[in-house]
């Protein structure tokens, strides 16, 4: 429990909580980016450099930009007359608080004695080696999934032809 962990945790929680509670959607995505950067810093602190930089590349670089484009294409920005929360918000927040209470209780009553192993540096070389040997089949399946998702997203977002339901 170091000071840097507390600062990064506060940054992450503040960013994500603001992203889920602000009214302007562009502000939501900007604060969400802050939360993702905080998470990437936490990964770096845990010694997973590659995952941290992947997080920045994929989430801050791609997912946030994708969300901004989706918000602009659906014209969700502007003065809102309708409330930001759905009609379902009371049971929704009760369920979320209950989930957090159960998880926190389980964590606090669970693992009490964990030794702290020395920092194990992982080089990109080792990760590439593992991806090419031990995890070769998952890597191929992931390539197939990404191709299918790419084609599927393009087909979904294509304008429909007339006379076609």
């Amino acid at each position: 429990m170091t000071v840097s962990f507390l600062i990064l945790a506060a940054l992450t929680i503040a960013g994500t909580a603001a992203a889920m509670s602000l009214r302007n959607l562009i502000h939501c995505v900007l604060t969400l980016t802050l939360g993702f950067v905080g998470l990437a810093m936490l990964y770096l602190q845990l010694g997973a450099q590659f995952v941290g930089f992947t997080q920045i590349l994929v989430y801050v670089g791609a997912v946030a930009i994708l969300a901004v484009f989706a918000i602009m294409m659906t014209q969700s920005v502007g003065p809102h007359v309708q409330p930001a929360l759905s009609s379902f918000w009371v049971p929704g927040s009760v369920v979320a608080s209950a989930v957090f209470a159960v998880l926190a209780w389980a964590i606090c009553s669970g693992a009490t004695s964990v030794r702290t192993p020395p920092q194990h540096d992982v080089s990109v070389n080792q990760i590439g080696d593992a991806l090419m040997h031990k995890f070769a089949l998952p890597l191929e399946i992931m390539g197939l999934l990404l191709t299918a998702a790419l084609i599927g997203a393009v087909i979904l977002a294509m304008p429909e032809k007339k006379g076609e339901q």
Partner: peptide, 27 residues
């Protein structure tokens, strides 16, 4: 509190924030 507990609690809080957003937001 050992470091692992801190990370697990942070992760649980993050999950609950995401769940609350997914359940309560209108957009």
């Amino acid at each position: 509190m050992n470091p692992l507990t801190g990370y697990l609690l942070l992760s649980a809080l993050l999950f609950s924030i995401g769940l609350a957003g997914a359940l309560t937001r209108r957009n």
